[in-house]
């Protein structure tokens, strides 16, 4: 079992609804975003211009530098493949912030512990989808089991040749993107 997600950038219109829903779900202050949406472009030369939006949150890497580097074991892999942080073990050394290539971790100044997207594992365990997936009106997000070759998620990943972001960094992310 390995939870993963697919984000279809051909569908994402950059409405930031997922960002707000995630903030709501995790009771985050306005300035803290586990999921950010960036606008790319317009790129290229007229008339071959392209512009798209890309939501970025924790990639739940299988070879996660944050997990490998965490001295206290606060950052760890769960059995379902997601990367989680135990706030009671976090000493606040910020090494994970330094080594995460995607820049998706945040130091919560109030708790002194690092936080990030949890892939809403509590929701997934009860059969719901993640809050961002539920909120996305364009159905740009799909969540499922990457280890199950018959799952809809894996089927679409193969059909659309979806790829993780910055694969060359070798962190083996569990979030895939259909590029526009």
């Amino acid at each position: 079992m390995r939870w993963g997600m697919l984000i279809d950038l051909k569908k994402c219109v950059g409405c930031h609804a997922c960002t707000v829903a995630c903030q709501n779900e995790n009771h985050l202050p306005l300035a803290m975003k586990y999921c950010k949406v960036y606008k790319v472009g317009p790129e290229g030369e007229y008339p071959n211009l392209t512009s798209y939006n890309i939501p970025i949150a924790c990639m739940h890497c299988q070879e996660a530098p944050c997990v490998e580097g965490c001295p206290s074991g606060a950052s760890h892999h769960r059995e379902d493949g997601t990367v989680s942080i135990n706030p009671k073990k976090c000493v606040g050394c910020r090494f994970c912030l330094l080594v995460c290539p995607y820049g998706v971790r945040h130091m919560n100044k109030e708790t002194g512990a690092v936080e990030k997207c949890t892939l809403c594992v509590e929701r997934l365990e009860t059969g719901e989808v993640t809050r961002c997936t539920e909120t996305c009106q364009l159905k740009a997000r799909h969540v499922g089991d990457l280890d199950d070759p018959d799952s809809e998620l894996v089927r679409i990943i193969h059909k659309e040749n979806a790829r993780p972001l910055y694969e060359h960094l070798g962190t083996k992310p569990s979030i895939y993107y259909i590029m526009p």
Binding site: E68, G69, C70, P71, S72, G73, A74, K89, V91
Partner: peptide, 10 residues
Amino acid sequence: LVYARPKSIM
């Protein structure tokens, strides 16, 4: 706790 995970470089 910084001694807890000997595999980590920290």
